[in-house]
């Protein structure tokens, strides 16, 4: 194990996990559905930079070197120290969001990672969007799953990271994160059907979370 990996795992165990549990807090449902090993694909809704932090802390520390958050190269690789943090410390897998004519498949890196046995962490909404609202999932996830029909796709519904640190804010406010792990899905052979499976799985997980709204008033 390289020095960097030991450093990452130490930081995870003595800094990140205590922060996640005690400064914030975890309301984790169906923990037993988390994969014990790779390859696997984790998909989650996305409202905050804390989403990646939260997902990384859910797994056992000795799996850290397997976890690869897939992230937009144009946003996270602007050069300098922040690029180094994203690539080496957090361990993101950069992909380009715009596919230019004549270029190879931008998801190649994802395929290679799955072949190595890594666990991909993907936010299929593409970007963080409005606070605590879920937008449509993009279909790149289906392209990856089609190449690896035997790899489990595990949907996770996240809540409150968007309240703790919404897009555009700098100061994280302590909230308890809810993370609800769904049953593993596998690619059924049809893209539209797969996207519908994901959509209904996420909707069902959302129902299990605190509703965070008052019941509709009858007038």
């Amino acid at each position: 194990m390289s020095v960097l990996q030991i450093f990452r795992k130490t930081i995870m165990a003595v800094v990140c996990k205590p922060i996640a549990h005690f400064w914030f807090g975890l309301n984790l449902l169906h923990k037993e559905r988390l994969p014990e090993n790779g390859p696997a694909i984790i998909i989650a809704n996305h409202n905050s930079h804390l989403d990646t932090f939260l997902l990384l802390t859910l797994f056992k520390t000795n799996l850290l070197h397997r976890l690869k958050p897939v992230a937009a190269a144009d946003y996270f690789l602007k050069g300098g120290f922040s690029s180094w943090v994203s690539l080496r410390l957090i361990g993101i897998l950069p992909v380009t969001r715009e596919r230019k004519r004549g270029e190879s498949d931008p998801l190649q890196a994802c395929y290679r990672a799955l072949e190595r046995g890594d666990i991909l962490i993907i936010f299929p909404e593409g970007s963080r969007g409005a606070p605590e609202e879920m937008s449509n999932f993009k279909t790149g996830i289906a392209r990856i799953a089609r190449q690896f029909p035997e790899v489990p796709v595990i949907p996770i519904y996240l809540q409150n990271a968007g309240r703790a640190l919404p897009k555009g804010k700098r100061v994280p406010v302590p909230f308890v994160f809810t993370a609800i792990i769904g049953e593993a899905l596998t690619y059924p052979g049809d893209r539209a059907e797969f996207m519908e499976q994901i959509r209904s799985a996420m909707a069902a997980l959302k129902e299990e979370a605190p509703q965070l709204k008052w019941p509709e008033q009858e007038s």
Binding site: G25, R163, V173, P174, F175, T178, K213
Partner: peptide, 17 residues
Amino acid sequence: KEFLSITPGRMEDRPIV
């Protein structure tokens, strides 16, 4: 923290939190 996390607070109220 648990109480404020399960109740429907407004995004604007983060300073009050």
